[in-house]
Simulated assay, not measured.
Amino acid sequence: MSTLARLVHFRWAVPVLAELHRGHGGRFVNLSHTLGVSRESLRRTLAFLTESGLIQRNPGKGHPLRPEYLLTDPQLGAFAAVLTELLADLGVTDVGLKKWSLPTLTLLVDERRFSEIRRALPDVTPRALTLTLKDLESSGLITRTVTEDYPPATVYTATPPGQQLARAAQKVGMMSLP
């Protein structure tokens, strides 16, 4: 789980990995235009991915001020491409690329309560988790059920499209970050 949480900390990390996989390398300007990301966000994302060892500059190509980036692990790029395509197919790209959406969704393959989710994601704040759960529910990726026990409890579980997305996100999360 921590690998996925670290990776999606930067909103554009998964789309950059997917685009590098699709294009077999990429220049900064091309990535910026293709993804519609600001220069500063892309710069921070590329710096993180480079420091993590997930991408590298192509040493034999291009001008030093206009570097080209390459994937260091093509399998991670393939998983990222599948994940971004699935997000687009389900129409939940904006929700799915938020910081805590995918880590939370992967936990909800099994039914869980709020406190269980919070324990599994120790860095998430209660407010961030609440907003994430509301976004996932409104996009149809999870369901929220209030039990009839006393005291009543609220449980969350992934819907079939949410489970499909969670499985794709788990493949990305199983890759190891240095």
Rank of each mutant, 00 (worst) to 15 (best):
K134E: 15
L131F: 11
F114E: 01
K98N: 08
E111D: 10
R113M: 07
K134V: 13
R118W: 03
F114N: 00
S115M: 11
L97E: 10
R113Y: 03
T106P: 01
A128F: 04
A120N: 00
K98I: 06
D123H: 14
L102N: 02
K98S: 12
W100E: 00
K98D: 06
S115A: 15
L105R: 00
S101V: 06
R118C: 09
K134D: 15
S115T: 12
P126N: 15
R118N: 15
L105Y: 03
E111N: 12
K99V: 12
S115Q: 14
L133S: 01
L97G: 03
L102I: 11
K98M: 14
I117P: 02
K134Q: 15
P103W: 00
L105P: 05
T130H: 07
R112V: 02
L107V: 04
D123V: 09
S101K: 02
A128W: 01
R118Y: 12
P126L: 06
L102V: 03
V109K: 12
D110S: 10
G96V: 05
I117Q: 09
T132M: 04
L121P: 03
T132P: 03
R127S: 13
A128M: 08
R119E: 05
T104S: 14
E111Q: 15
D123I: 05
T104P: 06
P122C: 14
L105I: 04
L129V: 13
